[in-house]
Design a protein around this nucleic acid. Structure first.
Lengths: 203, 203
DNA sequence: GTCTATAACCGGATAGAC
DNA sequence: GTCTATCCGGTTATAGAC
């Protein structure tokens, strides 16, 4: 059951997530966060000292959620095929739930690349295992692409439709949100089929 | 031959492009643009009245370059196969030359989606022709994917490696720029092969 | 812990001399 | 056209009452 009155710190984090995810560090205003949380602006400083520190908390938490999911998908997939399926579905479902995450991370990536990379490197993500997953397959079944290219392909196909939402909605579907939503609904299955068709040699 | 002393307006636009492309509207500072141009801050206002107007000039010009290229590629491609090849190579070469364009447009897209979509719609881009290119092919040769999904796929595969540069460089290549550059060099050919393999049925 | 009031700062914009 | 000096609004941050 949801707590009726969450404490102030939780309210602040929730509101700050909301605002920072939409506007980014530069665009966000402390006043807007306070309004969103329904509290006084100076309380933000009481709890988090500075805008920078508040942003940091939000970023760390947000990023952790994504990394945790990837790790989970990753360790539970033993074949290339199941990895593709689990990864695409897992990643897409996170982005459907919080579409702004994609912009948020990409924006912060251009503002402060160092910090984002450090966050990634501080996880226990086993890059080599991922690459070996791509190469361990039977050669007669899998086309010889560069594994890193394939990983980037999958990430690109999952993330891009969300950051480009206004273009897809506005240009492809003449502004019709409903059509965009259908497009997104079908997206995971499309990506899975698309990638598998490219990667696996048909019998 | 390059002009020895370009006029002030040109210097401003060049400097503003530099700064706005890297920092976005919110992150950019007029002082930084002035420094970059080697002129006084108040001259920026003399020539462009306001930061908004200056940004607008930079955005319009930058966006126009991209649209012009796409239009050119588009009208000169009569088959799906040649469209894929020309589009990927054209788009990638623009991004190799000015990698920040990708971030710049995506950032502005989240800040002011309306404006970006208007820019796209104001071009004489023939969406239907693009879609028909995807469907007009011999059915025994082309797999039946949703044309819009395919268009988004191609855009995603081209653009993402540039916006995610720090992650790819930092995580995949342990910070080695040279390896990232090789990756980017091989990227166009990979995308073409990848997309064609998925889309075209092998004989 | 929470609020009001205000300080301190920064950045865009303008005035005016040259 | 270009510069220096300055204004002014907005935003972060702090002081202090309750």
């Amino acid at each position: 059951m949801v707590k009726k009155t969450e404490n102030t710190e939780e309210k602040i984090i929730a509101a700050a997530s909301e605002v920072f995810l939409k506007k980014g560090m530069d665009g966000a205003r402390m006043q807007e966060i306070a309004d969103e949380a329904g509290i006084n602006k100076s309380l933000l400083h009481y709890y988090f000292r500075s805008k920078d520190k508040l942003f940091d908390s939000v970023f760390t938490e947000t990023f952790k959620n994504v990394i945790d999911l990837i790790n989970e998908v990753f360790t539970s997939s033993s074949t290339l095929e199941s990895f593709i399926e689990n990864f695409v579905i897992g990643y897409s479902s996170i982005l459907i739930e919080k579409p702004h995450i994609a912009n948020f991370v990409l924006h912060e990536l251009s503002r402060n690349p160092q910090r984002v990379v450090e966050h990634i490197n501080s996880t226990n993500f086993d890059k080599l295992k991922l690459i070996s997953l791509m190469t361990a397959e039977d050669e007669t079944r899998v086309r010889q692409f560069n594994p890193i290219q394939i990983i980037v392909d999958i990430l690109a196909l999952c993330i891009f439709p969300f950051v480009a939402k206004p273009i897809i909605k506005g240009f492809m579907f003449d502004g019709d949100v409903e059509e965009y939503n259908i497009f997104i609904d079908q997206r995971s299955q499309h990506i899975i089929k698309f990638v598998k068709t490219a990667v696996f040699i048909q019998k």
